[in-house]
Design a protein around this nucleic acid. Structure first.
Lengths: 206, 206
DNA sequence: TGTACATCAGTGAACGCGCGTTCACTGATGTAC
DNA sequence: TGTACATCAGTGAACGCGCGTTCACTGATGTAC
């Protein structure tokens, strides 16, 4: 880290990180441009050297989140290859791990109210993330007889919905919303039951 | 409706309804006490005749939501009896129907940041809602051999997670987040696959 | 039925606050000669 | 190496705004006599 004088050096990224910490600590509504600037040790006006405004800052945080999310999903997918099942299960675990390790990013991506269509960049990277999950689902569904096979998009939508639901309802340390089970277990078993329902894993495997 | 003069007549409920419409239209962050008062045709200060403040107003909206939610869940559950499966499926459908028909309530309940432990009333009614789903799951899981039976709480957590995920990701008209399938279908098929995974419905029923 | 009065739901003005944003500026950095 | 200068990242003061909340008040309602 170079000396910190009048010029910050890398304020842009420092702002994104300060924003993420605030979002993580106080939720999407708790984030303000002014507080973010203060947390980065800078005047609110300085933010405008790097971003068009408040929304652009959150959007950049979300974009970086999607970028990382793509990476972890792709890595997980590759790690399970050539087994379609192993690849799929790895992406499910990666999803939850991402949400837990990067709650600020996750909130910026899904709960900040920033539309994914705000910019072409954002839409592109979000689409990439989506497609990893869909590819994993499509690979896996090839093991299902064609006449009983649900569309891969529906398959992945189910998994995404369950993953997101587990994150929102049980993986947040929201006061009083005590989770009856560790969210990892909840998601793992939930997906397990679901896959068994598709006939993709044997009925009596636990 | 009595004449609308200086005294409103039923301002308390009118405020709750105005708040719900605002939440529905602009999301949980878009809700403000002042705007709610204006929408009800009243000065912001008048709100304090009926509520302790901003939070108390949202909490009351959430409470009424949980109340209705309990009712529809219980009705759905009863409607499927004595078949545990029919009762369970009806509660799933009722969940989504509630979220779609009463988005303001749903948001107040799950996305407004109001803790369910804010008051004893709220906690009690939320617990009741929770328990309907759990009871439906418990009934149904009795048809599973004891050694392969997941805890009913886990079972219902899975279903709740998938339901909530479908609502959040696919049942909102958020711009650009186009749903590939109608959310009703998504949830119905998702739960169907899940139940098949538990061996609760025959493998080749569609 | 009519009058006096208590009640209390709603008014309207005011408050302090933090927000996002703008603007002319200043001072550190780095390049040209 | 040293000086002049352009660049531009950050300052600090100011803005208008809407927020939640408070307060003394006013005027409609309904009850007692």
């Amino acid at each position: 880290m170079p000396k910190r004088g009048y010029h910050h050096g890398n304020l842009r990224q420092a702002l994104v990180e300060a924003a993420l910490e605030l979002i993580e600590a106080k939720g999407p509504a708790g984030f303000t441009l002014s507080e973010t600037a203060k947390a980065a040790g800078v005047t609110p006006a300085a933010v405008y050297r790097h971003f068009d405004g408040r929304e652009a800052l959150i959007a950049e945080a979300a974009r970086q989140g999607y970028e990382m999310f793509c990476d972890v999903m792709e890595t997980a997918y590759a790690s399970g290859q050539p087994s379609a099942l192993a690849a799929f299960e790895a992406t499910g675990r990666a999803y939850l791990a991402f949400a837990r390790e990067h709650p600020g990013h996750y909130i910026a991506m899904f709960e900040s109210g920033v539309s994914v269509n705000r910019s072409a960049d954002l839409a592109a990277v979000a689409g990439r993330a989506w497609s990893v999950l869909e590819r994993a689902a499509a690979d896996l569904s090839e093991h299902i007889p064609a006449d009983r096979r649900p569309p891969a998009a529906m398959f992945s939508a189910h998994i995404w919905a369950m993953s997101h639901g587990v994150v929102e309802l049980f993986a947040r340390n929201s006061p009083g919303n005590k989770s009856p089970f560790p969210p990892e277990d909840l998601l793992e078993t939930g997906i397990g039951v679901y896959l068994r329902g598709l006939g993709l894993i044997p009925p009596d495997r636990t």
